[in-house]
C-alpha cells in the first residue's frame, strides 16, 4: 500500500493559515445568523391543520430541514426523476457531489484540527478517490445546469442574479480545488496519483503549460487562497441567496409525498 497522507496547509504561510481560521469562523457565524433569520421567519407563519408539516418549534423545523436532506425522496430526487431523468441524474451529481465534498471537508477538520490522524495509508487513498470522483461529477452537474439555464434555455427558464451567482461560485470552488490538487500532483508526482484521476488530469495539463516549480508554487498559493476565499464566501452567502432552497426544499419535497395521502383523505375516507 502507498504510504500517503492528506496534506492540508503545506506551503501555506502561517499568517495565511491564521487569516483562514478567522475568516472561516466569521463565515460560519454569518451562515448560522442568516439561516436563523430565514428559519425564524418560517416560524412566524401560522398553522394549518391540513398541512402535513407538523407543529414544530423553530429548532424542530431547523432539524427537520437538515435531516430531510437524507430522506429517500431528496437523496434520489424523486420528483425530478418523474419529470426528467437527465435532469435528475445531473441534479444527483450536484447533490451527492456537494454532500460528499462537504463530508470530506468535515473529515479533514476531524483529521487535522482535532488530531484524529485518520487520513493516511489505505483510508486516505480511498478518501482521495471518492472525493476526486465526486468533485468531477459535481462539476459535470454544475456545467449542465449552467448550460441549461443560460445557453439552451431559449427563454424557458426564469433566472435571477443569484442563480448565476451560486452556480458560478460552486463551479469556481470546485475547479479551483482541482487546480490546487493538479498543481500539487504536477510538482510532486506522488505515487498516489492514480487515486485522484480528475486531479491527475488537471496535473497533466498544468505540467504541460507550466514546467517551472517556482511558478507552480506561487500559483499553488494563489489558488489555495482563492479557493478558500470563495468557499468561505459561499458558506456565508448561502442563507442570503436562493441556494437556501437546499434546506427548505427538503421539507416541501417530503411534505408533497405526505400530501398525496392527506389529499385523498379529504373526500375518500
Amino acid at each position: 500500500m502507498i504510504d500517503q497522507s492528506r496534506e492540508v496547509f503545506n506551503d501555506i504561510p502561517s499568517l495565511v493559515r491564521t487569516i483562514f481560521y478567522i475568516a472561516a469562523a466569521i463565515s460560519i457565524i454569518v451562515f448560522f445568523t442568516g439561516s436563523w433569520l430565514r428559519i425564524s421567519t418560517w416560524f412566524k407563519g401560522g398553522d394549518d391543520p391540513n398541512d402535513p408539516v407538523p407543529k414544530k418549534s423553530t429548532l424542530g423545523l431547523a432539524r427537520i430541514s437538515l435531516l430531510y436532506i437524507f430522506s429517500r425522496d431528496c437523496l434520489f430526487a424523486k420528483r425530478v426523476v418523474e419529470r426528467s431523468k437527465l435532469r435528475a441524474v445531473m441534479l444527483l451529481f450536484v447533490y451527492w457531489g456537494f454532500i460528499v465534498l462537504f463530508i470530506g471537508t468535515i473529515i479533514v477538520a476531524i483529521d487535522y484540527d482535532m488530531g484524529a490522524d485518520i487520513l493516511k495509508g489505505g483510508v486516505y487513498l480511498y478518501y482521495s478517490l471518492v472525493l476526486d470522483i465526486s468533485g468531477g461529477f459535481f462539476i459535470i452537474g454544475l456545467l449542465f445546469f449552467i448550460l441549461r439555464r443560460y445557453i439552451f434555455s431559449r427563454g424557458a427558464v426564469v433566472s435571477a442574479w443569484d442563480d448565476a451567482a451560486v452556480l458560478i461560485l460552486m463551479l469556481i470552488i470546485a475547479v479551483s480545488g482541482f487546480c490546487i490538487e493538479g498543481i500539487r500532483l504536477a510538482r510532486f508526482n506522488p505515487p498516489s496519483m492514480d487515486w485522484s484521476p480528475v486531479g491527475a488530469a488537471f496535473s497533466v495539463v498544468i505540467k504541460a503549460w507550466i514546467p517551472d516549480d517556482g511558478i507552480l508554487l506561487s500559483l499553488y498559493r494563489i489558488f489555495w487562497v482563492f479557493h478558500a476565499a470563495t468557499a468561505l464566501f459561499f458558506i456565508a452567502f448561502l442563507p442570503f441567496s436562493k441556494q437556501f432552497h437546499m434546506f427548505a426544499a427538503q421539507i416541501t419535497t417530503l411534505e408533497a409525498g405526505m400530501r398525496k395521502s392527506k389529499l385523498m383523505e379529504l373526500v375518500h375516507d
Binding site: 430565514r38 421567519t41 418560517w42 416560524f43 412566524k44 407563519g45 401560522g46 398553522d47 394549518d48 398541512d51 408539516v53 414544530k56 423545523l61 427558464v157 426564469v158 433566472s159 435571477a160 442563480d163 436562493k242 437556501f244 432552497h245 434546506f247 427548505a248 426544499a249 421539507i251 416541501t252 419535497t253 411534505e255
Partner: peptide
Amino acid sequence: TKRHLIELDACTR
C-alpha cells in the same frame, strides 16, 4: 402559514 413561508424559500427556479 409555516408551510407557505417554507415554500417561498424552497423554489429553485
